[in-house]
Simulated assay, not measured.
Amino acid sequence: MTFDPADYGDTLAPLLDGDRRRPLDEGTPQREARPALQALSVESAFAGRRLDDPLMARCCVSGVWLLYDFLDDSHTISQSISTPEGSFWHGVMHRREGDYSNAKYWFRNVGDHPVFDALDERFGGWDPYEFVDRCADAVRSGAGRDECLDQQQAEWELLFDYCYRAAVG
């Protein structure tokens, strides 16, 4: 899959067009983006598109907040979405904040997800729990950092695309 921000509409495209290779830790919220993120809603993000699944659309909004390192805002959204995808975003957020056991809890709630299969195909093996451990090691020691960053970016892009496609049918 090649991730093209233009595939996601006029509102989301400029928000997705930046660096999607985010830190393995909590990062630093990109304050200059806050006004655009605060203006982002399901209605604005999906304007002009038929919306089949509002919960999946909310997952996309949660993912965009996470992309800009606003973990608390992403958390507020994802924890209110009782779906595997809401749990997936929730798990990614907790992994980035360094709450690794909580991240694994949320990944258990995800179950077997099609995005895991896509990650498995791309990287020749994918286990979300093992990835949590590898990210934790990379944050502590730097070992495997670049590989984890690449995989985390692919994870974000695949999950965002999955949620977007489900939202619009």
Rank of each mutant, 00 (worst) to 15 (best):
R58Q: 13
S78T: 03
R58S: 08
L71S: 12
C163G: 13
D112H: 13
S80Q: 12
P84A: 14
L67D: 12
L66C: 00
H94R: 09
F131Y: 10
E97C: 01
Q153M: 14
A45D: 10
Q38K: 09
R31A: 15
F123D: 09
V110I: 03
W65H: 02
V64T: 03
E130L: 15
S78L: 07
C163M: 14
R134N: 11
S101Q: 14
L159D: 07
N102R: 10
Y105E: 09
F46V: 04
P29E: 01
G98S: 10
D53W: 10
V61P: 04
F131L: 05
T76Y: 12
A138I: 03
G18F: 05
C60M: 09
D133E: 15
L40S: 02
D127V: 09
V139T: 01
D161M: 06
G63D: 05
F107R: 02
Y8C: 04
S78P: 02
Y164N: 08
D117V: 10
N102G: 06
R165E: 14
E43A: 10
I77T: 00
A154F: 14
D127R: 07
Y129K: 08
M93N: 13
Q30S: 10
A13K: 13
P14Y: 00
W126P: 05
H90L: 08
V115Y: 03
V115T: 06
E97M: 01
L149S: 11
S80H: 09
Q79S: 13
A33N: 00
R95V: 02
R145V: 08
A33T: 00
D112A: 14
F46C: 06
F160L: 02
W156I: 04
A45Q: 09
